[in-house]
Amino acid sequence: MITIELGLDDLAATSFAYSATMEAGMSLRMWTHASAYAEHIPLFSRMRPAFERLDTVLLTSLVGATRWIPDFLTPRPTTPWPDFRRELAVLRATPPEQVWPELERTFLPIEGAVPERLTGAREDPERLLADIADTLEAYWETCLLPEWWPRAKSLLEADLVHRARVLAERGAAALFAELSNRLSWDGRRLVIRWDNEPVPGAPSYDVDAAGQGLLLIPTCFSHGALSVITPAGPPWIAYQARGVATLAERVEPPPAGPALERLLGLPRARLLLMLDQPVSTTELARLLAVTPGAVSQHLKVLSDAGLTARARHGRSVLYVRSPLGNSLAGMSPGMSPGVSQTAASAGQSGEATAEDDAA
């Protein structure tokens, strides 16, 4: 169990970010525990030939039997607009004296020993850290960046817009309740409880945010709230992003009713029904198997008619139905049976396991 003490100033400073390096590190679970993340299997199966040309022993050694990974693989994001190379530089700058203790805390409680491929960190942590960073960079460039990351990035950005809206409209209690059933909030303490306590070796500590705020981080590779194995620095909590199931394959757009189709035309009517959650032009183009330019033209018409609203996240612009668009679609806000709502539900349907406890 992890308890985070949050004062009013910490709640006011609660922020959101996602991390390319964290996703790379967490994605290594796919090569050791793929069945736990079935929604990713189609994409990762296509990556396998590229993955097998890398130092797979090193990469898979970083994931424990409980799916925990060392804390230094998940440095706390410092910006909501991640840049993999900048984040990797933070990983490379990990103090050498931190590496071996973190490996021990990751592996000893369950495995009883640090994997052989990582034992060099006891004598030469700098060299092992450099090897890990170099191999992780190659993994990012050859496996994740070409196809998986553009999809994941769009999904994570949409999640941040949604969570920020929940916090602004309904407050912290509603936000925490929606993030994970592992979280409980009493107005002062935010508690992460594991699914089946006691979990051998699971992190257990109390931390006082002490004016440092709280960072909330969506990830594609968790079934519940998690944090670092050992507290260090300002607190953060990672949680499962909405709509992870949409990463697997193209989802059929929802059918448009005859009246809406006659009014807007079939492409724009179906597009409007897909905008029940914030989504980027690129992601809409992928779901519809058309060009981003074609989507942009239709979105401009819908926007000029006041049927859509836009939310900016960094350099990305996300689109969602406006209240007028919701009325025209004949649906209440957030209750559409459209693509993103259905996929979000599918992505969160699995129960968390006792193993998926810490980064």
Rank of each mutant, 00 (worst) to 15 (best):
residue 237 I to W: 01
residue 223 H to D: 08
residue 100 W to L: 00
residue 212 Q to E: 15
residue 169 E to T: 14
residue 150 P to S: 07
residue 183 L to D: 06
residue 197 E to R: 11
residue 213 G to V: 14
residue 103 L to M: 07
residue 167 L to I: 04
residue 201 G to E: 06
residue 209 A to D: 03
residue 211 G to L: 05
residue 159 D to E: 10
residue 230 T to G: 04
residue 162 H to Y: 13
residue 227 S to Q: 05
residue 159 D to I: 07
residue 102 E to W: 12
residue 217 I to C: 11
residue 117 R to K: 13
residue 233 G to N: 10
residue 229 I to W: 04
residue 150 P to C: 06
residue 220 C to H: 01
residue 111 E to L: 08
residue 213 G to Q: 12
residue 224 G to P: 00
residue 151 R to K: 15
residue 206 D to T: 14
residue 105 R to H: 14
residue 129 L to G: 12
residue 227 S to R: 07
residue 135 T to V: 03
residue 208 D to A: 13
residue 127 R to V: 15
residue 119 T to C: 14
residue 178 E to Q: 09
residue 184 S to A: 14
residue 130 A to R: 15
residue 112 G to P: 11
residue 236 W to R: 06
residue 128 L to D: 10
residue 220 C to S: 14
residue 198 P to D: 10
residue 223 H to Q: 15
residue 218 P to Q: 05
residue 193 R to H: 04
residue 155 L to M: 13
residue 104 E to Y: 02
residue 226 L to K: 06
residue 218 P to E: 00
residue 211 G to C: 03
residue 138 A to P: 00
residue 144 L to C: 05
residue 181 N to M: 08
residue 159 D to Q: 14
residue 145 L to G: 02
residue 159 D to M: 07
residue 230 T to C: 04
residue 112 G to M: 10
residue 103 L to K: 01
residue 174 A to T: 12
residue 190 L to W: 06
residue 198 P to E: 12
residue 101 P to S: 01
residue 211 G to P: 06
residue 188 R to Q: 13
residue 140 W to S: 08
residue 110 I to F: 06
residue 172 A to L: 04
residue 128 L to R: 05
residue 212 Q to D: 12
residue 206 D to K: 00
residue 151 R to P: 01
residue 147 E to D: 15
residue 164 A to P: 02
residue 115 P to Q: 05
residue 199 V to Y: 14
residue 111 E to S: 13
residue 185 W to P: 07
residue 160 L to N: 08
residue 132 I to V: 15
residue 111 E to G: 03
residue 170 R to Q: 14
residue 213 G to T: 08
residue 104 E to A: 11
residue 236 W to L: 12
residue 119 T to V: 10
residue 100 W to Y: 11
residue 193 R to E: 13
residue 158 A to C: 05
residue 162 H to F: 12
residue 111 E to N: 05
residue 189 R to H: 13
residue 167 L to A: 10
residue 196 N to K: 10
residue 211 G to R: 04
residue 192 I to Y: 04
residue 125 P to R: 12
residue 149 W to L: 01
residue 150 P to T: 06
residue 235 P to E: 02
residue 123 E to G: 01
residue 161 V to D: 07
residue 113 A to C: 05
residue 225 A to R: 12
residue 194 W to E: 13
residue 207 V to S: 05
residue 190 L to Q: 10
residue 199 V to D: 00
residue 163 R to K: 15
residue 184 S to M: 02
residue 101 P to N: 03
residue 163 R to A: 01
residue 156 L to A: 05
residue 188 R to H: 14
residue 222 S to K: 00
residue 158 A to M: 07
residue 225 A to N: 04
residue 221 F to P: 10
residue 189 R to M: 10
residue 229 I to P: 00
residue 144 L to N: 07
residue 205 Y to P: 08
residue 143 C to T: 02
residue 236 W to S: 04
residue 229 I to M: 10
residue 138 A to D: 11
residue 221 F to D: 13
residue 167 L to K: 14
residue 206 D to V: 00
residue 152 A to D: 01
residue 235 P to D: 00
residue 218 P to V: 05
residue 203 P to W: 00
residue 160 L to K: 07
residue 158 A to H: 05
residue 139 Y to Q: 09
residue 111 E to M: 04
residue 184 S to P: 04
residue 127 R to S: 07
residue 234 P to V: 03
residue 151 R to W: 01
residue 146 P to H: 03
residue 226 L to N: 08
residue 177 A to L: 02
residue 130 A to S: 14
residue 183 L to F: 09
residue 129 L to S: 09
residue 99 V to P: 01
